[in-house]
């Protein structure tokens, strides 16, 4: 098992002929991802790294039957591309794109819910079921199979933690990037529920940050519904209030979204919170042995 995606997932890359699209198609193929099609309007008939390119998502679907899509499409066109994927029947849609207008994200996610599809992101590094399928931009070498499920709001920070875990001998089951925007398709609760039910996951690591209330909601959910051990690392302890720390969602507003409130909420339900990223493997060792 793994969550959301596995070795059977057939992936379509939207924006495959662009700089980032082609680079990360190469990386995903190298990881072993089953990329079956690319979409790039006006570039149909070409190939990128041996992957056939189509003008539209529906054309790609007719011939290659993908079931998940990843978008390397500029922000202004991302909603259109993501809705195209949704309309073509994709069940997992991963917009890597940063800077998508928040109302566009709301439209995408509302429509995805109606159709029973999952949106990973926007503004995410993607999702990887280690050793099976990588959809996104994370560096390949750190994602080896193992018992730790990781769910993160931040990309590079999750690479850091996954790399630290790997160095300590712990691989990952699935690593999910929620995305750094104000509105994202998945929250901690959605992913915790999946990890709780996943046979491969023995320990769950949350990588959170200041801003919003996602960590507090996760704490409430963990208390009632999660029996597996959960660890957390939260970024932004030293961030000043009222300043957006890069991510649209990473801001302490009107006294809400503080580091302290999140740590307290998580610790109150038995989640161990690491003070620094490299302490995560030490805590994992205490739990997994």
């Amino acid at each position: 098992m793994a969550i959301f995606i596995d070795e059977k997932t057939r992936v379509m890359v939207q924006g495959i002929t662009g700089n980032q699209g082609s680079f990360h198609t190469r990386q995903m193929l190298a990881y072993g991802t089953n990329i079956v099609a690319g979409v790039s309007p006006g570039k149909g008939g070409q190939e990128v790294e041996g992957v056939p390119v189509y003008d539209t998502a529906e054309a790609a679907c007719e011939e290659q039957k993908p079931d998940a899509s990843v978008l390397f499409v500029p922000a202004a066109f991302a909603l259109d591309g993501a809705l195209e994927a949704l309309n073509a029947g994709m069940k997992v849609i991963t917009p890597i794109t940063e800077g998508i207008p928040v109302q566009d994200a709301a439209h995408l996610i509302t429509n995805a819910r109606t159709r029973g599809a999952v949106v990973v992101g926007p503004n995410t590094f993607g999702i990887v079921s280690s050793g099976k399928c990588k959809i996104g931009i994370m560096p390949n070498q750190f994602y080896v199979p193992g018992p730790v499920g990781v769910v993160a709001r931040s990309g590079t920070l999750s690479y850091e933690i996954v790399a630290n875990l790997k160095d300590a001998g712990y691989g990952t089951s699935t690593v999910v990037g929620l995305g750094g925007d104000r509105i994202v398709g998945l929250d901690f609760v959605d992913v915790l529920a999946q990890f709780e039910a996943d046979g491969e996951t023995e320990l769950i690591v949350m990588v959170g940050e200041i801003g919003g209330t996602a960590e507090e909601e996760a704490a409430r959910y963990i208390e009632k519904h999660v029996s597996k051990p959960v660890l957390a690392y939260l970024a932004g302890k030293s961030a000043p209030p009222g300043k957006r720390m890069g991510h649209a969602g990473a801001i302490i507003e009107r006294g809400k979204g503080t580091f302290q409130a999140k740590v307290e909420a998580l610790e109150a339900v038995g989640v161990k919170v690491a003070e620094l990223p490299f302490q995560v493997p030490q805590l994992a060792k205490e739990i997994l042995g």
Partner: peptide, 15 residues
């Protein structure tokens, strides 16, 4: 690179 990484870097320098 990355907002979370940048925040964590500040936190660690502060630490």
């Amino acid at each position: 690179n990355g907002a979370g990484m940048a925040m964590a870097t500040l936190d660690m320098i502060d630490y």
